[in-house]
Simulated assay, not measured.
Amino acid sequence: MNLIPNDPYAQDTHIDAWEKLKQFTDARIAIGRAGCSIPTKAMLEFQLAHAQARDAVYQELDTETLQHKLQSIGLDSLLVQSQAQDKQEYLKRPDFGRLLNEESQQTLHNFNYGKANQYDVCIVIGDGLSALAIEENALAFIHSLKSQIEYEQWSLAPVVIATGSRVALGDEVAERLNTKMLVMLIGERPGLSSPDSMGIYYTWQAKSGCLDSKRNCISNVRPAGLSIPIATQRLMNLMRQSNKLGYSGVNLKDEHEIEQVESSTHLKRLF
């Protein structure tokens, strides 16, 4: 005698009515269902995305390879470290990630000692919360930006590679290198479909203790997000306006029209 009603769920996966919308977003919509649960494929994809996000946070930036690649496109670089001594401390103490350690302070002091000239632009590469994002996007973006900086005849400081870094670490670097315009590239907090997202923070005359309201942010730079050509256009427009007006941040609006960029213009990996 069967005491439990025998009401089996249909074996076929239910197709969601929003299925067609999936082509427009990486968000988890229209995943369907199998009985009263989500399909096994969707569950496995979620678990994979979660693992990729965790790996992005804990991955260490390959600074040696990054320096070699910068050298191959004619750019000198300096390596610095925040006061966070390891990844665990970096995650638990965000304040440590905003300050250079003593050795790095000395490195920048020695480099800039006796130099009266002011650089126009300083690019800081920070691992942030996704070293993967930097390794996947930073070199292609810098290569694109470099040609625009040369066109404007702006002087460029050596690229600074910062490990254990938060956004504000770039302020101290720019101040110590006596730079007018700071471009901070940093790995953004990974989402469950975007472990490779890079953020760009632009600041005019950045100094230690600079408020977030003084920055302009361009986010989600990656192949599946904002393309490198368009990100370069947006940043250069901000930099040109800032150079004329003498400020950046909430008062500096990005109102220019993006030039048409063909979908195939996504820069291929250069290295």
Rank of each mutant, 00 (worst) to 15 (best):
G246V: 07
Q105L: 14
F111I: 05
I200P: 13
E150W: 01
R33I: 11
I29R: 09
I142T: 10
Y90C: 05
S263R: 14
W154V: 01
A49V: 04
N237T: 12
G209Y: 00
Y151W: 04
N110Y: 11
A174C: 09
V250P: 06
L79S: 09
A231Q: 11
Q67I: 08
V221W: 02
N137L: 08
M198W: 06
S248F: 02
D86H: 14
T40D: 12
K253L: 14
L48C: 10
P8I: 04
N216G: 11
E60A: 15
Y9Q: 15
V159P: 07
A140S: 15
K20A: 15
I38T: 12
E135Q: 15
Q118W: 11
D26I: 00
E152T: 08
S72R: 14
P229H: 06
L61I: 10
F271H: 10
R222M: 11
R166I: 01
L145W: 02
A224K: 10
K87E: 05
R215K: 12
T232C: 00
W18A: 15
G225H: 06
A17F: 06
V121D: 03
L182P: 13
A42G: 06
E102Q: 13
T265P: 00
V261T: 10
S37P: 03
I161T: 00
Y247W: 06
L145R: 07
N220I: 07
G249R: 09
M184V: 07
G35M: 12
N137M: 11
W18M: 15
T40F: 10
S219T: 08
A133H: 04
A231Y: 13
E172I: 00
F24C: 06
E150C: 01
C122L: 11
I161M: 00
A51Y: 14
E188L: 03
Q233S: 02
L192Y: 13
T265E: 08
A56R: 07
G249H: 08
E188F: 03
D62A: 14
R54E: 15
Q11F: 09
R189P: 04
V183P: 10
I228F: 05
P229N: 07
K115Y: 02
S193C: 07
A131C: 11
R166A: 01
K22C: 14
K41S: 03
V159A: 03
L238G: 12
H68Y: 13
S82F: 01
G209I: 00
G199P: 05
Q105W: 01
I142K: 06
P223R: 12
H143A: 13
E64W: 13
T107H: 05
K146Q: 15
F271D: 12
E19N: 09
N216M: 07
E262V: 05
A51R: 14
Q241D: 02
L66W: 10
N220S: 03
N112H: 06
F111L: 12
G191W: 08
E255L: 03
C210P: 01
A168L: 04
E150G: 01
L21V: 03
T107E: 12
K92D: 11
R269W: 05
A34Q: 06
Q71C: 03
S77Q: 02
N112W: 00
R240I: 11
I230G: 07
R222W: 10
W204C: 09
A157V: 11
R176K: 12
Q83T: 01
S208V: 10
L78Y: 03
N137I: 13
L48K: 15
I125D: 04
